[in-house]
Amino acid sequence: MRKKYAIFDVDGTLADSMRYWDHLAEDYLGGLGIHASGEELAPIETMTMSESSAYFIHRYSLSKTPGEVMEEMFSLIRKHYEEDIPLKEGAAAYLRSLRERGVRMCVATANDTALSRACFRRNGILEYFDFFVSCEEIGRGKRDPDIYDFCREKMADEAGTSLLPSDIAVFEDAAYCLETASNAGYYTVALFERSYERDWDRIRRIADESYVSWKEAA
């Protein structure tokens, strides 16, 4: 990757956290005595946390607000970001090499930025990123390019220049995110995530670069 600007996803891309998220909804609903099927949970895969919360309230007639559901789910997963979620192997060294080359980096996540910051601070990579933005802040998930466009405009403002989508590399693990960024004109870099193993062939077709491990990236 030879771009001077980069936008990074967190979960499944830099942080090895997907196994926690894969079971969060099931664990949360199970705590309420609800045994959700895989079919019932499938729609939340591309939703933001607030969208998922609203979906649960509607689907299971919960007497809660979306904010209450979000906070309850965050309370289940927060401790993992603060205490034990590791980075993907080789991620820290790769980020360090980009910073040494003068690459400006930011985070675009569907997760809460406070959780991402806690994980990055504990793993010693927080300093590499200029800013963090969440889909909740933007008001749209990664089916739309708004979060990438926001990051591009903010990077351009901070650098005092103009930037085209093609000037920026977007690092993601999920096919739909890579497709969104690619269709919007961004240079895309994919990292393998076991949760999306079934989509790997499609992901490799979408992305400009794709890697099974950060140790392969250059």
Score class of each variant (00 low, 15 high):
148 Y>P: 14
53 S>A: 15
85 I>G: 09
165 P>I: 05
125 I>W: 11
121 R>M: 08
136 E>F: 06
10 V>A: 15
130 D>H: 06
174 A>K: 15
72 E>T: 10
78 R>Q: 10
211 Y>I: 09
203 I>M: 13
61 S>V: 01
180 T>C: 15
54 A>Q: 15
190 A>W: 12
32 L>Y: 07
111 N>S: 12
16 D>T: 01
101 R>A: 09
65 T>H: 05
114 A>H: 10
57 I>F: 04
139 G>L: 08
188 T>G: 03
63 S>I: 03
66 P>W: 07
123 N>R: 13
200 W>D: 08
179 E>M: 14
161 T>K: 11
203 I>D: 13
43 P>Y: 15
214 W>Q: 09
78 R>A: 09
143 R>D: 05
140 R>E: 09
22 D>C: 00
180 T>M: 14
166 S>I: 04
9 D>G: 07
64 K>T: 05
198 R>C: 14
44 I>C: 07
79 K>Y: 14
39 E>W: 03
85 I>N: 11
163 L>Q: 07
214 W>F: 12
44 I>N: 06
34 I>Y: 09
46 T>P: 01
205 R>K: 15
130 D>G: 14
204 R>V: 14
74 F>C: 01
94 Y>T: 13
161 T>P: 00
129 F>R: 07
128 Y>W: 12
129 F>V: 05
115 L>Q: 05
176 Y>M: 04
200 W>Q: 11
207 A>M: 06
146 D>G: 10
119 C>P: 05
171 F>T: 02
117 R>L: 10
173 D>H: 08
106 C>K: 09
157 D>W: 11
215 K>P: 00
130 D>P: 10
65 T>A: 08
94 Y>C: 14
79 K>F: 09
95 L>Y: 09
85 I>H: 03
105 M>Q: 07
4 K>R: 15
135 C>W: 03
187 Y>E: 11
106 C>P: 13
171 F>P: 04
52 S>E: 11
